[in-house]
């Protein structure tokens, strides 16, 4: 069922991470912006929200990347330790 073609799989992975990152930053910024909008503290929560969103995006991409390396390696216990 799964298309194993290298290019399209790589593209879909790259696209997936890009969306993950962009959505998290956008969401963080939007949440900060709406807090600012209702409490009139522009622009401080917006700035904080963008940074928190960036952190959340990195976290999401990190987790997604970890899942992919697990799929390729031999099981969830393989942490990619080069000495083993």
């Amino acid at each position: 069922m799964r298309n194993k073609s290298g290019l399209s799989q790589g593209l879909s992975i790259a696209f997936r991470f890009g969306i993950e990152m962009a959505v998290a930053i956008g969401l963080g910024g939007l949440m900060g912006y709406s807090i600012d909008y209702f409490s009139g503290t522009r622009p401080w929560f917006f700035v904080a929200g963008v940074f928190l969103g960036g952190a959340a995006g990195v976290l999401n991409v990190y987790r997604a990347a970890q899942e992919i390396t697990f799929e390729d390696d031999d099981g969830p216990n393989d942490q990619g330790d080069p000495t083993s």
């Binding site: 969306i19 969401l27 949440m31 959340a56 976290l59 999401n60």
Partner: peptide, 15 residues
């Protein structure tokens, strides 16, 4: 950070 990362999941899934 975790709240944002959790709320981002359905959005990225849909987008």
């Amino acid at each position: 950070i975790e709240i944002i990362s959790m709320l981002a999941r359905p959005i990225s899934l849909a987008v």
